[in-house]
Each structure stands twice: as structure tokens, then as C-alpha cells.
Design a protein around this nucleic acid. Structure first.
Length: 667
RNA sequence: GCCUGGGUAGCUCAGCCGGUAGAGCAGCGCAUUCGUAAUGCGCAGGUCAGGGGUUCGAGUCCCCUCCCAGGCUCCA
């Protein structure tokens, strides 16, 4: 054996250690602060425990809890303690898997006698976890043969299933085949005589290294995500490297809750979901209707400027149309069941607009001279979403898409895609979104039509316009629609969440199914290419995203009410009315609040409604022709502003589509 | 669709071991006429989601249905 081992550090330097040195020894050799902060290490890129011995010549990095990988170790270890606590409280419980997820972890259990967790249990479990952490139990790694593993977990059916999968060489979430000696082995972590868990690790050295966690909620989840398998009880939690980081995370969650569009929609009187109508079906109130109209009007204007023509199509159709399009074959699960009319003819509510636009195209023979044809429609579609998935305005059963279909020649395709992407990004920026990345979705493994070659051509066309942008491109393998690949524009909002916005889909299939043609300059018939695209996605969903992004404080140009004028007393009513009239005369949305309430109360109401400009007019203003101005986001009112001056300010704000300062914590 | 938890006044929520329903805000009325985030007093408002059952008696216990939330799955 060599007298020393030498390992290389991430900065390229080498360090010499005594034989048998562990990652922990290394951390201590580098410095006491690192030794204290260390939770695990990587050896030649593989994550290992601090107690693992370092081989000579290895590249080693120490993981601390403030790194992404370090937090994952922390969370994974906390998940183990959760399992230990549950087994302590419910002897005989079965434990399944406990992986790390974004910002936290979960663990799935099956409790004896079909018992289930309640919110009170979370507190008890959390308290027990803290006991275990106080007991300073080590995470000791052991390796076992498959047979030993099966023996160890004889009464744990889920663990046995994982081990059996490892034995078959499957890559498992929470247990890993280790290529040691060519024979499959499993590793366990032993915390105490009462608890060990199957896991590939690594873990923190001891339960005492944990502590900044919260158990969040209980949920049901299928074993392996398969609805035919047993439903387990899942506990979600989050864990961080410090109390401050934990608090910050909880604060972010509160911020997201404050921005919940369903809450804002009710508070700001924008829309509602009356039970009488049904799940996932919204009505827009006057204020929400105004916002929606503004969004749609602006979109229409931009589409008209960009060479789109406006078409309209009905909400229902005979089944034949969707049989030809393939929707009945591929999409029937998401469609409302048919209505039988006219002695047996079946009619369907439309889940998509494309077949209708195709019929517009096919209404007469087309020449290459008139391509591209760009048909736009605010098309209202209905999709029978499963009851558990509907969510506010972001996932509904009835929605209006800003849908368009472009029919073009193969030669025109690249240019169309390119200008389309510019159009999309410009439009989204006008609404104040400006942090984007692109996602390219390729052929689905199961549900798809068309040959691999066609898919390759279409996918490549999309890829080339995507990479031409100075934007991040993320692959979404298998995420395309059944008829073609797509690019989607993902936007990050004010608190760092990402939303799928616009989609651009290429389609070589529907033109074939509907036998679309155009006559080329060669006097021969050719097949056009079809591009599907929706920029808002759905108007409802885009509305929801804007509401959350702006926390309800929509830009002035989109605000349902832009200015509210408050007379100090009844003496100023006439003046207030004249100010309001001149604002309305300038094309603004303004009203006078004549309620018999104190000026303070009316200011508060106007502010709570997130009105961009709240004007107060009293004696001084009547004589001087001025107003007092409260701008949204400012707590310092300004006095003696000339009406003309204020009017110019608001008009300029609207014309510039100025983005308000977004209240709240940035991500 | 499945799991868990919910549904009490327009909204947010109290309501014990089963004994006949309560607050704040909003609404309405009266007083108040006010210069920058809630003036005071009063009134009204509920088939306790709907239906069925147990019970002398059900908001409360049981069953079914609908709706909501968080997940699983799916997705714009």
C-alpha cells in the first residue's frame, strides 16, 4: 500500500493525505470551517459520504449544505429521519421511497390497518424527528448482496420491490446498482438498531447535522405513480441549511399565495367560478371583462399588423371532422362526449380549432401566389379535463385560444417560423414579460402519427429557428403533440416561477389527412405545410399569469379602472365630475367616487382595488384647477398637480404600456 | 378519474362530548361633509353544499351526490 494518497481538488491543486483518509479527513485538512460545513463529497464526480475512504489519484470535492447538491443531501437525509419517525410512531408501517424534489423532499408510506395521516400527525412526526436529530444518530453505510437485502427488508414489500428491480439491473430512484465486483449489491444506511433504510446515499454524517425543516402537507400518491398500484400516503417537507434559509423559503411560498390569481380574481372582482355552471368554467365580471377585452383588442391589432386574417368557426361540429383530423382517435379522452342529433348524427364540442381553419383553406383551390395564408381566431374550445386537474383559470374546461394556423410552402416555412418567433416574443414583452427560454418538444413515444423522417424534418426546422435566438433552449424529448413537434416559449415571472406561454407547432399530418393542396408555379399540385400557434395559449390562462406576475397591480394600460377621482366633500362633486369627464374624454377609464364615506376610507378602497391613479380634489384644487395625485406603489401623495399635466402623464403611461414596479420579493 | 382534507351569512372564519347559529369585513339605513390606507350607531342577512339514514332531537354521527383545496396522473 502506498505511503500516502494524493487527491486533486476542484481548484486543480493536489493534497497528500495519510492512507485510509476519508473525505472528512480531507475537509479537516483544508480547513475547520469547511469541515464544519461539509455534508458529503464527490469522488470522481460520484457523490459519497464523508466517511468514505479516498482512493489515490481521485478528484475530490467537498459538498457543503449551501450548494444545490449539498441541499439535496440534507433533504434526502431529512427524508430518512421522517421515515424513521413514522416507523417509531406507527410500528409496522411500510415505507416506500423518499426522494428529493425541488425545494424539499417527500416520503411515501403505507400505514398499518389502512390508517392515514392527519395535520395533527405532522406536528407529532415533526417533534419525533427533532428527537431523532437530538439523539445524534450516525448514518452508517452498509452494502449487502441482493439476497441479504431481501432478507433485511423481509417485511417491507416496497423495499423488496426496489431491491428486486436493482437485481434486474433497473435504474432506480432510490436504490442503485453498484458496479462492485460485477455483482448487484444494495446499500443501506443504518441509523440505530431500530431503523435502517435502503438508499444509495450519500447522507450527512449524523442526524444531528439536520434540523431546519418543516413538514408541509399530506397527500395521496400512487406507488410508482401508477393508478393501478396501491395508493400511498405521502408527506411533503422542506429542509434548508439554516433557519434563515428555511424562513426565506416559507416567505416565498406566502408570496406565491398572496399572488394566487383565484384569490385576486375574487378580491378585485374580476371573475368567478359559479358552482351552478360547473367545474373549470369561469364567468368574467365587468372589471375582468374589461381587462380581457383590452388583451384581446391589442392582440387583434398586432395580428392584423402582422398579416393575419380573421376567421370565425362554430363551437360544435359533426363527428366526421374530428374523425378525419385524428382527434377522435388520439384526443377523445379530453373531449366532451358527443350529442346525438338529427336522427343519429353525432356532434362534438370542439377541443381545438385547427380542423375548422383547414376547411377555410380547403374552401377553394389555392395558388402558391396566395401563400402563406394566416388565419386567426379567438377560438373557444372545450376540453373535458379530469376533475382533479382543473385549477383556477390556468386549467379549465372551457377556454378561448388566440389561435392561428399558417398554411405555407416548404420554402416559406423557415421564414414563417422565424418571423413568428419574433412576433411572439415582442407581444409577450408588450405585456411586461421579458425573461424567456425556449423548449423544443419532440415526437411522443406512444401517441403520434407520421413517419420518423417527417418528424425529423419538422423538428430540425424548429430547432434551427430556436438556436438562431439568443435564448436558452431546453429539450423536451417526447413532449410534442401527436401531429407534430413544437417550440414553446417559457417565461419566468416576477417571483421566478416559469410558465409555458406560447406554442408553435409544425404539422405535416393534418394537411395530408385533409388532402390540402396548392397549385405551384409549375402548375402541379403540392401539399402545404401547416403551423399551429397560440401566443397567449389561452386568454384565461394568460390572464391568470399576468395577474400573478403583477400581484394584481396590472399595468395602467390593462387596468380595468385607471383613475379614480375622490371629492373631499360634497362641495367638490361638480369639480370631481369635470375632472373625470376630461379623463374619459382623453380615452381613459376613470370614475368619480361619490360615496358618503370619509376621504380616508375612499382612498383605502381605491388603493385596495389597485387603481393606478387615485386623485383627491378639494377646495384648493377647485380654485387652482389642480388635483392631488396618489400613484400606485408610492405612499407619498403629490399635491397641486395641474389637471392637464396629470392627464398627459396617464396618457403617456398607457401609450408606453409602462410596467409597474412589481411589489414583492424577487426570486 | 384516484387519494387526503374541506364546504357554516356575499367574503374570511368560530361553533366542545348531538340540545335548535355566532364574529369581523362587505351590504343596507341614519347621523357625519371629512385633504391622503377603515367615522359612529343601527338593521338585515343562513334549507349549516344537496339528498338519504340513525336519533326524542343532527351544523355536529353514518351513507350517497355535487363543489373546492393539495397531491398522483395529465396539460394550454
Amino acid at each position: 500500500m502506498a505511503a500516502t494518497v494524493t487527491v486533486r481538488l476542484p481548484d486543480g491543486s493536489a493534497i497528500e493525505l495519510a492512507p485510509g483518509a476519508t473525505a472528512r479527513t480531507l475537509a479537516e485538512a483544508i480547513g475547520p470551517r469547511l469541515a464544519k460545513a461539509a455534508v458529503a463529497a464527490t469522488v470522481d464526480g460520484r457523490e459519497v459520504d464523508l466517511t468514505s475512504e479516498l482512493p489515490d489519484g481521485a478528484e475530490v470535492a467537498i459538498l457543503t449544505a449551501t450548494s444545490v447538491a449539498g441541499r439535496a443531501v440534507l433533504r434526502h437525509s431529512t427524508a430518512h429521519v421522517l421515515a424513521q419517525a413514522v416507523l417509531r410512531l406507527w410500528p409496522g408501517a411500510h415505507y416506500a421511497i423518499g426522494p428529493v424534489i425541488e425545494d424539499g423532499f417527500y416520503y411515501d408510506f403505507e400505514l398499518p390497518d389502512g390508517a392515514h395521516f392527519s395535520d395533527d400527525d405532522l406536528e407529532r412526526i415533526g417533534a419525533t424527528m427533532r428527537e431523532i436529530m437530538a439523539e445524534d444518530q450516525p448514518f452508517e453505510r452498509h452494502e449487502h448482496s441482493i439476497d441479504e437485502g431481501l432478507e433485511l427488508f423481509a417485511d417491507q414489500p416496497f423495499k423488496r420491490e426496489i431491491i428486486e428491480a436493482v437485481a434486474r439491473g433497473a435504474d432506480e430512484v432510490d436504490a442503485d446498482a453498484e458496479p462492485t465486483g460485477g455483482e448487484a449489491v444494495v446499500s443501506t444506511y443504518w441509523n440505530s438498531p431500530a431503523f435502517s433504510d435502503l438508499c444509495r446515499g450519500p447522507h450527512v454524517p449524523s442526524t444531528a447535522a439536520l434540523g431546519h425543516f418543516t413538514l408541509m402537507r399530506v397527500a395521496g400518491a400512487y406507488w410508482r405513480g401508477d393508478e393501478k398500484r396501491p395508493q400511498l400516503q405521502r408527506i411533503y417537507g422542506t429542509a434548508w441549511e439554516s433557519e434563515a434559509a428555511l424562513k426565506e423559503h416559507l416567505h416565498r411560498l406566502e408570496e406565491a399565495e398572496r399572488r394566487d390569481h383565484r384569490k385576486l380574481g375574487a378580491e378585485l372582482d374580476l371573475f368567478s367560478f359559479p358552482d351552478e355552471i360547473g367545474s373549470g368554467l369561469a364567468v368574467f365580471h365587468p372589471r375582468g371583462g374589461t381587462v380581457r377585452r383590452l388583451m384581446e383588442d391589442y392582440s387583434r391589432q398586432r395580428h392584423a399588423e402582422s398579416g393575419y386574417e380573421f376567421v370565425y368557426s362554430p363551437h360544435i361540429t359533426k363527428s366526421e371532422l374530428f374523425a378525419t383530423s385524428g382527434h377522435l382517435e388520439w384526443y377523445a379522452d379530453s373531449m366532451y362526449p358527443p350529442m346525438e342529433l338529427d336522427g343519429g348524427t353525432e356532434y362534438y364540442l370542439k377541443p381545438m380549432n385547427c380542423p375548422f381553419h383547414i376547411l377555410v383553406y380547403r374552401s377553394r383551390q389555392r395558388s402558391y401566389r396566395e401563400l402563406p395564408q394566416r388565419y386567426f381566431e379567438f377560438g373557444t374550445v372545450y376540453r373535458y379535463e379530469k376533475s382533479g386537474v382543473v385549477h383556477g383559470l390556468t386549467r379549465v374546461r372551457g377556454m378561448t385560444q388566440d389561435d392561428a394556423h399558417i398554411f405555407c410552402t416548404e420554402e416559406q416555412m423557415a421564414g414563417e417560423l422565424d418571423s413568428l418567433l419574433t412576433f411572439v416574443l415582442d407581444l409577450l414583452r408588450d405585456f411586461g414579460l421579458n425573461d424567456f427560454y425556449l423548449e423544443l418538444s419532440t415526437k411522443p413515444e406512444t401517441k403520434s402519427v407520421g413517419s420518423d423522417e417527417e418528424w425529423d424534418v419538422a423538428t430540425e426546422a424548429l430547432r434551427s429557428v430556436a438556436v438562431a435566438r439568443d435564448l436558452e433552449l431546453v429539450m423536451d424529448e417526447g413532449g410534442g403533440a401527436f401531429y407534430g413537434p413544437k417550440i414553446s416559449v417559457q417565461a419566468r415571472d416576477a417571483i421566478g416561477r416559469t410558465w409555458q406561454m406560447s406554442t408553435i407547432q409544425l404539422d405535416f399530418q393534418l394537411p395530408q389527412l385533409f388532402e390540402l393542396e396548392y397549385v405551384g408555379s409549375d402548375n402541379a399540385r403540392h401539399r402545404p405545410i401547416m403551423i399551429h400557434r397560440a401566443l397567449f395559449g389561452s386568454v384565461e390562462r394568460f390572464f391568470a399569469i399576468l395577474l400573478e406576475h403583477y400581484a394584481g397591480a396590472l399595468p395602467t394600460w390593462l387596468s380595468p379602472e385607471q383613475v379614480r377621482v375622490l371629492p373631499v366633500s360634497d362641495d367638490h362633486l361638480a369639480y370631481a365630475a369635470s375632472v373625470t369627464a376630461s379623463l374619459i374624454g382623453a380615452g381613459l377609464r376613470a370614475s368619480t367616487d361619490t360615496a358618503d364615506e370619509s376621504i380616508k376610507a375612499r382612498i383605502r378602497r381605491a388603493k385596495v382595488a389597485k387603481t393606478p391613479y387615485v386623485l383627491v380634489v378639494g377646495d384648493d384644487d377647485v380654485t387652482a384647477g389642480t388635483v392631488g395625485v396618489n400613484r400606485r406603489g408610492s405612499d407619498r401623495p403629490e399635491r397641486d398637480v395641474a389637471v392637464d399635466e396629470l392627464l398627459r402623464e396617464v396618457v403617456a403611461d398607457v401609450a408606453a404600456k409602462r410596467v409597474p414596479e412589481i411589489a414583492g420579493t424577487p426570486a
